[in-house]
Every structure is written in C-alpha cells, then in structure tokens.
Write a protein that binds this DNA or RNA. Structure first.
Lengths: 179, 179
DNA sequence: CTAAGATAGTCTCACTTGCAACTATCTAAA
DNA sequence: TTTAGATAGTTGCAAGTGAGACTATCTTAG
C-alpha cells in the first residue's frame, strides 16, 4: 500500500504549515477512513470462514449470529434492528436460510404480521462449527494487541457507539425506545 | 437498538456456561461486527457533509482526499492502491470529477498508459471548504474520548492495520513492494 | 364498531460496485 | 527485434442492497 509521503518537500514557511493543519487532511490519519478500510479488511478476512466454507453471505451470517446468541425465537425486524441491516436484506437472508433449512419460522399467534424465527437443528450444527472458527479469526486479528489493549479498544468502541447513538435523529431514537 | 439480553435465564449449569463460551458468540462483543457497524455509522455521519452539501460520493471524496493531501499529481492506480478501492470505481469517480471540472488529467509522457491527475482550482476551492467540516465532524465523533484515548485508539488501529497487511496474500504483498 | 395510522414482511426498481474482458502501452526475455 | 507477460485505465455485466410501494395485520382514537 503506497502512502503519500508525509514529509512535504519544503513547500512553505512554518506559518503556512500551521494553517495547513486545518486545510489539509491526511487520509491515513483520518479515523473515519481508517475505520472504513479496517472494517472492510476484517470482513474480508472473516469471509473466508463463513462464505467459502459455509456458503453464507454477510446478512445470512448476521441472522444466524443473532438467532444463535438468543435462546428464544425472534422476529426478522428484531434482527434488522439489532444488526442495523435493512429489513429487506434480512428478509432475503431469511428466505435463503429457510431454503437451506438452516432456519425455520412459525407464525406468531399473538401478532400475525410477524414470524418467530429460530434455527433448525441443522442450523445449530452449522453455527456450532462456525463460531469457534470466527472467534479464532477474531483473536488472530487482535493478537497484535495486548490483553490490556484489547480491553481498552473494546471500551473505546463502546464509547463511540454510545456517542453515535446519541447523535441519531429523534425518529430513530423513538424507534429504539419501542424495545 | 435492541440488544439481546446477556443475562440468559438459567439455561444450564455453570459447566455448560464454560463450554458455551466457545460455542456462542455475542455479536455486540464481536469486534469485526462492531467495526463494520461503526464504520457504516461514521460514514453516514460524514456523508451529510460531502454528499448532501457538495454532491460527492465516497469514491469521489477519496480521490479528492488523496489528491488534496499530495502536492504532486498521481495516477488513478495510485489512488486505488492508497484507498484500497477498486480501480474501476476510481475510474468512474475520476470521470465524474472531470465532468464537474474538479479534477484534470494530463498524459504522462514517460508512460502513456497512465494519466497524471490533479485538482483544478475549482477542485482546490471545494477541497478547502470541505476539509474543515470533515475534521470538525471527526472531532465531534471522537469527542467522547479523551485526548489520551484518541491517541491510544489511533495507535491500536495502526497496529491492527499493520498486522492485517502482514496477513495478506503474497501476491498483494508483491504489488505493494512495487512502491 | 370504524377509521386512521403504525408496523411486519415481501417485492420491485434503481443504483452502486466488484469482476473480468478489453485496449493500449510498457517491460523483459529469447 | 519479436514475443510473452505485466500494467493502466475503461467498460459491460451481474450480484447485492437500500428505498419505497404494497399487503396484511395490529392499535388507537373517535
């Protein structure tokens, strides 16, 4: 990966450098870009586990991950909210998973608009095979950090996540309060 | 955002909980997922700046960011490598930016396969308007962290980035060594 | 009870983007 | 020099995804 040289060849006085500080932006130090690129690379690193080996795409994996972590069945909308994935994407993922008989759904007698989703035995088996691989991969990626750093990183991600939640629009906040 | 309850209702002995630790995965504690979601949200938060206000999409912004940080012109391929964006995506972004006369390109006499790209005066003006807004937004997002934490976060991102580089395939590593 | 509005899930459409083929050009080796 | 392979950039195509319309159902206000 090439990196634009940070040592700019004598292109101005120190005074200009000071003002440039606000007028130029080093993409490689810009946290939003770094996050986006890092997330893409980490996703790609994990894809080999759930895509190549198990034929799952990201939305499908998110459905399984949500169902697998919960003991009880839940609705597609709930999964969409949890994972911040559009409901149409979740709908397609659920359809694909049902065709592969990894997930099943039953009508909810109390609210017949929604379905209760849960993993089948087959889905459970796949899930239990997949999870250790993913956790191992995660550890592999984080192994460059000490245990202390990993904990700190998790805490900082948490703070930013929380802060972003607060920055959401009120309509989204209302939607969330429904839970 | 609903969060699956972490306090699982007495579903097994302590022994089972210990083994479950490896068989279940809490999406909300799974760093790859958190990164992906966080990156998406941060991107969305920035989009209002460069999309709504300046009509730029992400690839276009990445082209401008790379050109703006460098003093000299560079090739489309270089931008693709820097930003880890596919060359076809960069190609389309450059076309759009040229149509808006924000970027211009000149033939490279030394290698007539490639073009040297640089911002026009108009592109520079837009860039200088945009950058302070984006930096302010970044600070806003990171303001929930102390200066110390921000520095630590940057350092940790750096470590993971570096570690992922090492995890790449040899063909990619070769490509990088060309620089 | 009825009507209006909210919500769950599906489906169509449009857009974005990666892949891969293609052209043009460069490089290296026979 | 010639030829094979690599590289820069463009473009057609296909897959994935979000927006929003739509149906069915639920909720609430009158």
């Amino acid at each position: 990966m090439p990196k634009p040289s940070s040592s700019e060849p004598a292109a101005g006085s120190r005074e200009q450098n000071a003002s440039r500080k606000e007028r130029r932006l080093d993409l490689f130090r810009f946290v939003p870009f770094r996050l986006s690129r890092l997330a893409a690379e980490v996703s790609a690193a994990l894809a080999s586990e759930y895509q190549e080996r198990y034929g799952l795409d990201i939305p499908e994996w998110r459905v399984l991950a949500t169902l697998g972590f919960r003991n009880d069945a839940c609705s597609a909308q709930y999964i969409a909210d949890c994972t911040r994935t559009h409901k149409s994407t979740i709908s397609r993922a659920v359809t694909a998973l049902m065709e592969r008989q990894l997930v099943e759904r039953v009508e909810n007698e109390e609210d017949r608009r929604e379905f209760r989703l849960r993993m089948t035995r087959k889905g459970d088996a796949l899930y239990e095979q997949l999870i250790p691989r993913l956790l191992r991969k995660e550890q592999e990626i984080l192994s460059c950090l000490s245990a202390r750093e990993q904990k700190d990183l998790a805490a900082m991600l948490g703070k930013i996540e929380q802060s972003l939640d607060l920055m959401q629009t009120s309509s989204e906040a209302d939607a969330k309060q429904a839970y």
